[in-house]
């Protein structure tokens, strides 16, 4: 069964049809990319999936449940985590607190934790902190747990955003241009990290990316959006050779 099923969603802002009849099906464990020129509506799709916008038409079904019109925090608690195109950390909080908040709030659906947890409040606070630290370790950020998020260098802020999104223990992770602003080497490291995370946490990943080399190497399937409409869908190979895509987006640069 599909983990995520998006049926014909559309949204307009004023006269602009930002997303028009968008469909998507993600199977558990898939890694799918969403590409398209600037302003094609990619982030809008993310905003609909996370409940930040309500689609005017269509439905979003996640994990067998219709989540269309559900509030952001509820959708997040059901298991959709995301990162942002422009980094949006809780800048004045520590690195550790950024992760802890996501864990404590998004993790609420796991009522079993609450019931079977033993020991005092203090102990559970410590458990949470330990857990968050172990997550930071994956991202090589455990040494910076006590630092204020805004003081981290750019690359680390990007990693912290992913760490924070994962702290909610999502089933589906939405990454909005995770490689933006990274140099080629950092991008390659990110690629490995995403592959590893997906396996380690059995994640389904849907990502927006402008870095073609990353998308082509990482994704099994790619959707191309232009003017709010899906103009192509297929394997990286198919996308690379699709004339409509080349015309709309990739131009001469495809190698």
């Amino acid at each position: 069964m599909a983990l995520l099923k998006v049926e014909d969603i559309s949204i307009s802002f004023g006269g602009l049809r930002a997303v028009s009849g968008f469909n998507l099906e993600l199977k558990p464990g898939e890694l799918v990319g969403l590409i398209g020129p600037n302003g094609a509506g990619k982030t809008t799709v993310f905003n609909i999936l996370t409940g930040f916008y309500q689609p005017q038409e269509g439905r979003v079904i996640f994990d067998g449940k219709d989540i269309t019109g559900l509030g952001c925090h509820k959708i997040n608690r059901l298991g959709i985590g995301r990162t942002f195109q422009n980094i949006r950390l809780f800048n004045e909080l520590t690195v550790l607190d950024n992760v802890k908040i996501a864990y404590q709030y998004a993790g609420r659906y796991s009522w079993r934790h609450t019931i079977f947890r033993t020991g005092s409040y203090r102990r559970s606070e410590k458990e949470i902190a330990d857990w968050a630290l172990s997550r930071l370790e994956i991202f090589n950020l455990d040494g910076k747990a006590g630092e204020i998020a805004k003081n981290l260098p750019y690359g680390e802020q990007r990693r912290l955003e992913i760490a924070r999104a994962l702290a909610g223990r999502p089933k589906l992770l939405l990454l909005d241009e995770p490689a933006a602003g990274m140099n080629p080497q950092e991008t390659m490291e990110l690629l490995e990290l995403i592959k590893w995370l997906r396996k380690e946490f059995s994640l389904t990943i849907f990502l927006i990316e402008h870095d073609m080399s990353l998308v082509m190497k990482l994704c099994e399937r790619i959707l191309v959006l232009d003017y709010g409409m899906t103009i192509a869908e297929g394997s990286p190979e198919e996308i690379r050779n699709n004339p409509r895509v080349i015309e709309a987006y990739l131009g001469e640069e495809v190698s």
Binding site: T50, F52, G71, C72, H73, N76, R77, G81, R82, F84, R88, L89, F90, N91, E92, L93, D97, K100, I101, A102, Y105, A106, G107, R108, R164, A165, G168
Partner: peptide, 21 residues
């Protein structure tokens, strides 16, 4: 309290991290 600080810093991001604003 921490969630309050998170909301004051970025309400939208907080919502998307499961905080009921």
């Amino acid at each position: 309290g921490k969630a309050m600080r998170a909301v004051s810093q970025d309400a939208e991001a907080a919502q998307l991290m499961g905080v009921n604003i």
